[in-house]
Design a binder for these strands. Sequence first.
DNA 1: GCAAATTAATGATTTATTCAAG
DNA 2: CTTGAATAAATCATTAATTTGC
Lengths: 195, 195
Amino acid sequence: MEDGGSSRWNPTKEQISMLENLYKQGIRTPSAEEIQQITARLRAYGHIEGKNVFYWFQNHKARQRQKQKQHTLAYFNRSFLHHHHHQPAGMMRRIPDNNHSEEETMFDYDDDDKQQDRTLDLFPLHPTGILEGKKETQDNNNNNNMMTMMCSFMAPSSSSSSSLSTDDGHGYRHQQQQQLPFFDFFVTSGHGQGS
Amino acid sequence: MEDGGSSRWNPTKEQISMLENLYKQGIRTPSAEEIQQITARLRAYGHIEGKNVFYWFQNHKARQRQKQKQHTLAYFNRSFLHHHHHQPAGMMRRIPDNNHSEEETMFDYDDDDKQQDRTLDLFPLHPTGILEGKKETQDNNNNNNMMTMMCSFMAPSSSSSSSLSTDDGHGYRHQQQQQLPFFDFFVTSGHGQGS
DNA sequence: GCAAATTAATGATTTATTCAAG
DNA sequence: CTTGAATAAATCATTAATTTGC
């Protein structure tokens, strides 16, 4: 398959590179808006959707973490095997022979809860000045929260695709692909953010 | 608070009852469309959104499972304490004194992977005949998959709320509530399902 | 009876694990 | 074997039950 009906996103070099940059800059769990903008930017380099960005950060974070864990483990082991517990007092800092330029230095990857800085303008590229007048007036309308957001977009769709009881007459439900979708839901009637 | 600005969904008796019925009928991980319809139905009994239905099934499934595990454990223990390993040859079947009408019988709750039947018309109520002509032509357009679905609804929103680099000028990013949203993403430009 | 204090349920989010395409 | 995609497990947080002292 060329690129058209690929079942899974295949990021381009540029996209990966930019995503990694964002990651290095501290982005871990981008918000809805961030994902939107990131996606918009990366689209210049190839087909991409918001979910891809979302997943990418999920996976990258997780896998960096487990890589980190392994390295820490390895370090401990090696440390013990060679010159047993001669730690120079004060938590060790770095894997001696770790020259990977990708990982954060030992014990230095900030987990989400650690109030990471994220001091960045996400793209060192032409910042299209959009979205300037945004104060932190998050007081009432922090509809950053997806769900809520999505809900105002989708309609109950009473006549789109599959029926609630796709029965086929044999009493069996056709398991289309492998399992059931995912977190597929959303949808609410127009209740807005009443009151 | 009456019901207006509650931060979390508070299901009514009827809603819970109906959800439990659906669960008993075999629903575990409803698809996007199913959630939509379920939500629509349950809305008759009070405010509710798709995500609530989604979460409810997630939680209920998980918690039934762990309840099940505990019961199984309890059974094993009791079994061993009273008449040690005198299993009548052929995996035991049922907890003798288990009269709960809620749980499935021992070892009988079907996990998602077990090609559950789900033979049901979700609501024993007036089945509104909607969505009849639906063949299992899921071959190409199984846009059952949210993500994809959502993506066609939302626009890049280049001027809605927060900026990508909400910098405030101090180089700090305002942590508005407690953490970052959730699985907030979606959004793509109109790429449809162009083959 | 009735609130403040505690505990139990359960709705909502995040993290870990698994599955499968390339 | 890497990694995108999806689900399940663990966790957090808020609301309802329940208890307790008055």
